[in-house]
Design a protein around this nucleic acid. Structure first.
Lengths: 360, 360
DNA sequence: AGCAGCACGTCATACGTATGACGTAGTGGG
DNA sequence: CCCACTACGTCATACGTATGACGTGCTGCT
């Protein structure tokens, strides 16, 4: 039984003494380098002694000696945002499965980067960083060999690219196919590549369909319901109101729902709405939201694997592209005055309980 | 300028050499023990040298020498749950402000406790743990002096108690005051004190009002929309349907909204609903949710402070009680058939944009 | 028999820092 | 003039582990 009351925790020396072997042997066993250096019986003896003493290798000493902390930092802009929470979840689990621990690092401000993330690395506090929020390009070289970027590009660091442009295009095409022509946009009020790409996907789809976007139907908002609602109200108060709004995230779509409610508009009869993420929020809304699904947890897990490859200097693909799916739910339908053309849709009624998922 | 390209990071010895002082002096300065041991000019010289070399004290070495990692673990059952995400947010920020880093540790399974949390401590990976999910009582002694529990009791560990019982009582009284008598309950499907207390607060309020709860109006569900919806449908399919449902969390309330929608019931005209948490979800729903607000981020921050006191062996209050507020929103109103008695409510129309907050 | 090679272990050291035990001046009081 | 005291620094060491450099028998091959 582990001696729970003991004051000073056991060290490898204690274990060695108890097992009648040298400290090196203990270290070899716990380091997984026992093969060919430690016999079967001594190994068993060591493991017994360790169990009896409740021994756990001291992480700090290990890290000092091997300059390898088995800790990775997860950098996110906002833990509260369900999208990032899910990312944390996926990354933490993957890390644990590989014997790593995860450090939570929220980087709310651009200026934090230098002090928060780089200092962690130079202090050797963590082996590497998973960047769910893109760092300023001038820091990329400083992060080389120690970081992986999710959903942003880099010429220096390995990245996981999400097919957000294709996603936005698919969502737009979906609306166009339903007969919408006046398609507005509620954009994120953040300067990040990922949102620029959404804009591009939208613009391309519109151009391809020969439809000219009306800029009066475009607005930006921060990721809060209140802001999104205000922006959506502004859009919907346009003289020639759009029949659909494409949102940069599910959270922004909430604002549109609120605004629609304020104006006594019914979704989807009067207004179709699409989002991005397919997190908690999408199915929580009524009607449920048509959205571009981002398999965040899986992506985070894969990002961790890539980070591991980087840290172990294995050759790493510089760019991995993750395809996204458009999930069609009842928040989108044909625009008003087109009512009876609904039959163009494949696969039955839109109000089916089961979602229609469309690979992009 | 920090020598960004240099391979080996600078050590205190390097800084000492460059500043023409001993390594001890550097250590004293960076350890904050310079007062009375290091003069003003040498200190400045050291700081300059450190800046020029881009020096950051090696965390592992520090931890080894001082047996003090400046890391705390944040143990939560589910990062994805907005309640815990907010808690993480608050704790991480507080930790950082005090020079600590936060380790993310999700403990989904009861059986994980031993291996995940205790091992972290015995490996000296973290100085302490913030427990947002209560550990099995038999582990409490093993955590003594290293942990603080949030929203659960312990005879061994310091705790932050949330006034959830009073919260549930207040919510119930609110419904009773509106005229409801048939008040159902949607409970969390988790064995935790915090939910037992909600049950107790509800039961007390009902008893005090002389109303006998109908057990057919009670159900349990896991924290998913689908589960909650099923359970709510079951409750609402009772022959003598309740006019209000008290939910153990906002997430569960979502299920009630879904079920109400399924049955073509209008909230609050046909059914009043209350929740617990007042997180993202509460204002996202339509109509917005009357709920017991838990100031999660602030609580987490305070919990961290308490943990710090524990770690520094300062004397710590064993039990801190956090009062909660009931936030009244449009999801609650008088029951059907009582329609014209609404005027009993204080402070004007229920559909006001501004919330009514009621201290408990 | 001799020697390479393997299986099994131990020795000694270094990782980078923090800190108690020591100086060494200089100052002021008795 | 001596002592106590303060202000400023340095020395040496230990924290607990990982690992390259060494044995030491033993096997098997020539």
């Amino acid at each position: 039984m582990p001696e729970v009351g003991s004051r000073a925790p056991a060290t490898s020396v204690d274990v060695a003494r108890r097992a009648g072997v040298s400290q090196s042997a203990v270290s070899l066993v716990f380091g997984g380098k026992a093969a060919g250096r430690v016999g079967e019986q001594t190994r068993a003896a060591i493991e017994n002694a360790a169990r009896e003493l409740g021994y756990q290798p001291n992480r700090a000493a290990r890290a000092l000696r091997s300059s390898h902390s088995h800790l990775v930092a997860l950098a996110v802009p906002d833990v509260t945002n369900p999208y990032f929470a899910t990312a944390l979840q996926g990354a933490e689990q993957a890390a644990r499965e590989h014997g790593y621990a995860a450090m939570l690092t929220s980087v709310a401000d651009e200026r934090d980067w230098q002090h928060v993330v780089l200092d962690l690395l130079s202090a050797r506090a963590v082996d590497g960083v998973l960047l769910f929020t893109p760092p300023p390009t001038e820091l990329h070289t400083g992060l080389r060999g120690k970081a992986v970027v999710v959903d942003a590009t880099s010429r220096v660091l390995p990245t996981l690219q999400l097919a957000v442009e294709a996603g936005a295009r698919a969502a737009t095409e979906h609306l166009l196919a339903l007969g919408h022509r006046k398609i507005g946009r509620l954009c994120a009020d953040v300067n990040a590549e990922t949102f620029d790409l959404r804009a591009k996907g939208y613009a391309d789809a519109m151009r391809a369909a020969g439809v000219t976007p009306n800029l009066r139907h475009h607005a930006r908002a921060a990721f809060t319901i209140a802001e999104a609602r205000r922006a959506a109200l502004w859009i919907l108060s346009a003289p020639d109101r759009p029949t659909a709004i494409l949102c940069d995230s599910d959270m922004l779509a909430v604002g549109v729902y609120k605004a629609a409610h304020d104006l006594h508009l019914t979704i989807p009869a009067d207004l179709s709405v699409t989002g991005f993420d397919d997190g908690l929020i999408a199915t929580l809304l009524e009607p449920e939201l048509t959205t571009v699904a981002i398999p965040t947890a899986a992506i985070a897990a894969q990002a961790f694997q890539t980070l591991l490859a980087v840290l172990e200097q294995r050759d790493t693909p510089m760019e991995t592209v993750v395809p996204l799916d458009l999930v069609i739910r009842p928040s989108t339908s044909s625009p008003p005055n087109t009512a009876r053309e609904k039959t163009a849709r494949v696969g039955g009624s839109l109000t089916d309980e089961t979602d229609v998922t469309k690979p992009i």
